[in-house]
């Protein structure tokens, strides 16, 4: 029962980073991938069908955090006030700007700025939790999201823009590869260092995978590489424990909701991907 909720929370958080990661990455890169307004519009348009579905993974994760780990939720959010305020402010700006971008290019400012703020916020949070230097994690998360956005665009965009996205993504692999061991080596004392090392090795392998492959496979590699670091930081520091969990009365009530909803969301989100599947390939 306890491990069910810990695994569920981890999966929802990982799902959020894997999916929303390429949203933010696309926002960070699209002005470089597209040379003119038409190309930029297409680059963003490749991402926008998924935005709503991607962002709600975070909403669901925080919902589970609140319902199943109420004491952790209060402590975590209020204890990292600045990081979370940065994330949420960025998220709101990003979500609004995605909608409004068609209206005027000036909305590129909150679009890029919002995506950047979200990445910076997660970087600060991970650095806070592990005791590593904040700039390292900020650069690392921005780099990982951008790389993920790059492989997404390389996969989804036809023609020259796709080629440019591929080149950008490849140029980001090396900085990301340098970030991973640095994050492990410069971390402070950690409750379960073996988790951190294990995940770091996995992320390095995935990054190399993204380097040698292309298209959907490269995208999947960067998706998992994006998904792992932040949940791994919490696992390594043993933040999510049974003591912070709600009582059995609460958990019993939440189980049916989770068991019914998750398969439905997976099914319907898969249907969205299927409907806007790549046709030029």
């Amino acid at each position: 029962m306890e491990s069910f909720w810990i695994v569920l929370l981890g999966l929802l958080a990982a799902g959020y980073f894997a999916l929303a990661g390429f949203d933010y990455g696309t926002a960070l890169l699209f002005r470089f991938v597209g040379r003119d307004e038409r190309e930029r519009g297409r680059a963003l348009g490749a991402m926008t069908p998924f935005v709503l579905g991607d962002e709600v993974w975070l909403v669901a994760a925080v919902g589970v955090l609140f319902g199943a780990f109420p004491r952790l939720e209060g402590e975590l959010l209020s204890g990292h006030h600045g990081a979370f305020v940065t994330i949420v402010t960025g998220l709101v700006a990003f979500t609004a700007a995605v909608q409004l971008r068609g209206a005027a290019p000036v909305w590129d400012v909150p679009l890029v700025g919002g995506a950047l703020a979200v990445a910076v916020g997660w970087g600060v949070l991970a650095a806070d939790v592990t005791g590593a230097p904040a700039p390292l994690w900020i650069v690392g998360v921005v780099g990982l999201f951008s790389l993920h956005g790059g492989t997404f665009l390389a996969w989804r965009l036809p023609g020259r823009a796709g080629v440019r996205a591929r080149a950008l993504a490849r140029s980001l692999v090396l900085p990301c590869l340098l970030f991973v061991p640095a994050a492990v080596l410069l971390a402070g004392p950690v409750a379960r260092p073996e988790v951190g090392v294990g995940v770091a090795v996995a992320v390095v392998v995935l990054l190399l995978g993204a380097w040698v492959t292309s298209g959907r496979v490269a995208f999947c590699c960067t998706a998992i590489a994006c998904a792992l670091p932040v949940p791994a930081v919490f696992a390594a520091q043993d933040v999510v424990t049974a003591e912070t969990m709600a009582g059995t009365g609460t958990l019993a009530v939440l189980v049916p909701a989770a068991v019914v909803v998750l398969p439905l969301v997976l099914l319907f989100q898969w249907a969205t991907w299927w409907m806007v599947r790549v046709r030029h390939a």
Partner: peptide
């Protein structure tokens, strides 16, 4: 009060918010 107050909110985010957006 998170055990009690959080339960309906968690159901809200899962059953409603998550599913509704999808």
């Amino acid at each position: 009060a998170g055990d009690v107050f959080g339960a309906p909110l968690a159901i809200e985010t899962l059953v409603a918010f998550f599913l509704e957006s999808t």
